[in-house]
Nucleic acid binder design. Structure first.
Length: 207
DNA sequence: AAGTAGCC
DNA sequence: TCGC
């Protein structure tokens, strides 16, 4: 367990290899029902480099005209998001202790050259609930800042099987992914191989 | 600016 | 490559 800031708790290798395989199987099934899509930045319409989908009652997305938001259904198929796998609900309970279950699980798929700019998670109403992030596949250089964009940042590596909880002050901290590290020795489990180099799952309360 | 480029 |  490593604390990278007040409320930012990193659990390296929280999932063992067998658990990562089981999770990959569940996520591959979710992607089969809710295909990956590309969100676009508000106003500019520039595409994000990650491909994403969701499971749970609500899913995060963005497009040029309507911007960042949560939706109950897939933007292309119109179908409700598939349920959050039970092992993720268990992970949420074990790692956050929060009394209510997560309402959204964003599935972000990173290719070798995908990035995620520094941002705050601020499209939710519930800022008391922690955020739980689980990683699969390639390592990434993750950057964590403070509550203001200009605050100093720290960078560390997130690896497959790692969990990161952002609670308390860290719930509002800026964060992003600088780059994906070489993935030859840390491939995604077979069930997700071919989709990308790294998969990140972000569980949140929304309402 | 949940992006991209450029420079140190 | 990293951090601005």
């Amino acid at each position: 367990m490593l604390e990278h800031g007040p409320g930012a708790i990193h659990y390296p290798r929280w999932l063992d290899a067998a658990a990562q395989e089981r999770l990959a199987f569940e996520i591959a099934a979710a992607i089969a029902r809710a295909p990956l899509f590309v969100s676009r930045l508000p106003k500019s319409g520039l595409p994000m480099s990650v491909r994403m989908t969701n499971c749970g009652p609500l899913g995060w997305m963005s497009d040029k005209d309507r911007g960042y938001r949560y939706e109950p259904a897939h933007p292309e198929t119109g179908t409700p998001w598939p349920p959050i796998p039970s092992m993720l609900l268990d992970a949420w309970a074990a790692l956050t202790g929060y009394p209510k279950p997560p309402e959204a699980c964003l599935i972000n798929v990173y290719s070798d050259n995908a990035k995620m700019g520094l941002h705050q998670d601020r499209d939710e109403s519930d800022f008391d609930a922690p955020i739980l992030s689980l990683s699969l596949g390639a390592d990434c250089r993750f950057r964590l800042g403070g509550q203001k964009r200009g605050d100093k940042t720290v960078a560390f590596t997130l690896s497959g099987g790692d969990a990161l909880v952002l609670s308390g002050p860290a719930r509002r901290f800026f964060h992003g992914v600088d780059r994906i590290l070489p993935s030859i020795l840390t491939p995604l489990p077979q069930q997700l191989a071919g989709l990308g180099a790294r998969v990140n799952l972000t569980l949140r309360r929304v309402t």
